[in-house]
Each structure stands twice: as C-alpha cells, then as structure tokens.
Simulated scan of single mutants.
Amino acid sequence: MMRRVETRFGGLRKLSGVYGPDGSGLSGSGKSSIASKGILDNTWFQSAKVAKSWFKLSPSRRTIPPPFAGSSAVSGETWPVRTRNTAPIVIDDVRRRVSNVLFSRRLDATSRHRMIESHFARIRARHALSTEEESAIRDAMGPSRAFDAHHTFIEAGTPLNVSVLLVEGIAGRYKDLSDGRRQITELHVPGDFADLHSFTLKQLDHNLISLTPCRVVLFPHSNLTELTERYPRIGRLYWFATNLDAAIHREWVLSMGRRTAIARTAHLFCELQVRLSLVGRAEADGFDFKLSQVDLSECLGLTDVHVNRSLRRLREAGLMTFRGGRVTLHDLDGLREVAEFDPSYLYLAPHPL
C-alpha cells in the first residue's frame, strides 16, 4: 500500500523513492539516519535513545503528523512511503510513546510510592512507623489493579497467593443467598487491607466487591512472609489490623441485631467519618461517599425504602444530609448521640507494639 507523508523532522535528510519497513530502497546516510532509528512503518521512537534525541529538537522540528496524502510542511514536496496496513499514529500517540519510553518506570515508581500513603496514614494514626519500615513495606508491593464500580474482584473459595490493599475508592466484603439477596459485612476505605486474613487462610469464605471505582495494590504472600520475618514488628502491626477488622465486624453485628434503623444508619456514617478522617478523606462537616441507597441497604440489612426513610428523618432532624455522593454532617455530636456511637472499638489509642 502506498501512502504519502509530510514531515517536520527537519534534522533528517529528505529521501526519494519507495522504501519498506526494513529500509529497503534506501541508501547511504539516509538509510542509517531513518531506518536505524525505527521511524519507518509507524514504529517511531521505540527506543529511549531516539526519544531523547527527539526531545532535544526544537518544538517546530519535533512535530510529526500522522501519514496522510499531502505535501511536506517544510519543503512543499511529497514523499511516497510504503507501509503496512496499520492505523496511522497521531502526534498524541507519538508523545505518549516517547513518554512511556523515557519516564514510565520513574513515574510508576513515584506514583506507586504515593499510592500507599493512605496505608501509612492509617498505621501512623495508631502506631509509630519508621522510615526503614515504610521502605520495607514499599519493597513488598506488587502490581496495582483498577476496577470499575460493582465488580466482584475476589470470589469466595478462590485460591489466593496475594493480599489486596485498597488505595482508592470504597470496597466491601459480602455474602449472598441463592435467591440473590446480599449482605455487605464490612466496608473498606483507602489504606485498608481488604483481605489480609487471606495471608493465612489462602482463600476467603466471602466475596470482595468494588462499590465505587477502585484501585488496589497487590502484595504477594511470599513478599509478606519475607517482610514479616525480617521485620517482626510489621507482623504485629498487621496482626493488629486483622484484629481491628474483627472489632468492626462485631460492632456491625450489634447494629444489625439491636440498633433501630435510624440508629444503625447514623452509626455507619459516624464510623465512616472517623475512618476516612484518619487517611485524610473526611472532615468534621462531611465527606464524599459515592454509594447508592441500594448499596446502603445491603450494608444496613434494611430495604432501600427503609434506608430512604431513615435518611429523611436524619435530614429533617438537622443532623446530616446524604445527596449527590456527598455526606454533609450538620451536627456530628447529635448524630453520635442518636447512634450511641463510641469509637473505642476503632482502637484510636492502642498500646505500643
């Protein structure tokens, strides 16, 4: 297939004739200056060396449009080029490839380090954490994954060799019945290990779902083994984390077994305000919360109609408003009084480990 291409890569010699992806048809310095740099056949900038050279050029010389029929923007001449049937690369694609070649590893390392800052904030809210321990935890990190909302990313009974650290979004543990009714047994916020207990269990008896768009970091169990053997105190910190999960479970059982609908609704929002504030995601007057009322009903063991009624009563009492994915707390003390909320089960001032 024949195409014509314009170029503004002014530092390269103009060629004449027809040539292929391997540089056939080229001769002399023209072939070495273009074919050897991987610019033919839509394979521009596949090496860091070429990318660095490209960035050294002036902006007017490094703008390369996609292949199309037309004249050269520099000389007004047309050059025939033989290419495969591949989609043309637009300038944004070129820039993206260049960035990937040069900076992807550095940016990935930086973003990965920042990713788990919420995890460190969660730990520091209760215990001291040394720089060496932070570095060791970062070194144990595996790849990250992103999930759309309402995606079950771990199913009960699946063999597991990684544990999942939530860094963005809201996730939940749930179990369901054969008729499809579902009970969410705990919510996870950024900084939480959603399934640290899988480190010893190697599978779960419940499912894990992303209730909003989520990003997680995987920690291979082999890395966790090495981490906790080299740093026994980190092992104790993570043991504390699983005990804290159990304490939250017990409080949820009490809510669903004994609290009224309005009290258990108020209690959930009081708990979330504390847990999200520890990782910088909430203030005293509110926080973002993208769950639907149906999701809330599955957390609270109520119908969505009953949840709607409870939210209306809390709003009419001037305590809180839940609208448009945002919880606004008008009277936090009053809300805690309705919920009989005692944050001691969150162990905000534990003994040193």
Score class of each variant (00 low, 15 high):
326 R>S: 03
211 L>V: 03
314 L>N: 09
130 S>E: 03
187 L>W: 04
336 R>H: 12
236 R>Q: 15
38 G>Y: 12
247 A>S: 10
290 K>H: 07
70 G>W: 00
264 R>I: 06
222 S>V: 15
252 W>N: 10
133 E>Y: 00
42 N>H: 10
194 A>D: 03
331 D>T: 14
345 Y>R: 10
314 L>D: 13
327 V>C: 11
230 R>M: 06
244 L>T: 09
335 L>Y: 07
2 M>S: 00
68 F>A: 08
351 H>R: 13
306 H>M: 14
323 R>W: 13
28 G>V: 08
15 L>W: 04
157 G>Y: 13
345 Y>G: 11
303 T>A: 15
99 S>H: 03
85 N>C: 03
13 R>T: 15
245 D>S: 15
265 T>I: 13
113 H>T: 09
135 S>E: 03
264 R>F: 02
265 T>E: 04
78 T>H: 06
102 L>P: 11
319 L>T: 08
257 G>P: 04
163 S>M: 00
44 W>H: 02
145 R>G: 01
67 P>T: 10
306 H>V: 15
167 V>M: 03
69 A>N: 12
219 F>Y: 15
171 A>N: 05
22 D>I: 02
267 H>I: 02
63 T>N: 12
219 F>Q: 00
107 L>D: 06
335 L>F: 02
223 N>W: 04
147 F>P: 07
31 K>G: 11
303 T>R: 13
3 R>M: 09
224 L>Y: 11
217 V>G: 09
306 H>Y: 11
274 V>K: 04
236 R>H: 07
275 R>E: 05
216 V>R: 09
193 F>D: 07
232 P>K: 08
214 C>R: 06
16 S>H: 02
289 F>Y: 14
40 L>P: 01
93 D>E: 11
218 L>D: 02
348 L>I: 01
297 S>C: 11
315 R>A: 03
109 A>W: 07
41 D>N: 14
124 R>I: 07
346 L>N: 13
266 A>M: 12
343 P>D: 11
302 L>R: 04
71 S>Y: 09
315 R>V: 04
345 Y>T: 00
347 Y>V: 08
192 D>S: 00
81 V>F: 14
210 S>M: 02
268 L>F: 08
249 H>G: 11
245 D>V: 14
177 L>C: 00
92 D>W: 00
75 S>N: 12
107 L>G: 08
149 A>E: 12
76 G>H: 02
172 G>F: 11
3 R>T: 13
146 A>T: 04
129 L>K: 12
126 R>I: 02
145 R>M: 05
321 T>W: 02
177 L>Y: 00
258 R>W: 08
88 P>G: 13
318 G>W: 14
120 F>R: 10
294 V>M: 10
52 K>T: 14
5 V>S: 05
107 L>A: 03
68 F>W: 05
142 G>I: 03
91 I>F: 15
282 A>K: 02
287 F>L: 00
313 R>Q: 15
269 F>W: 02
110 T>E: 14
343 P>W: 14
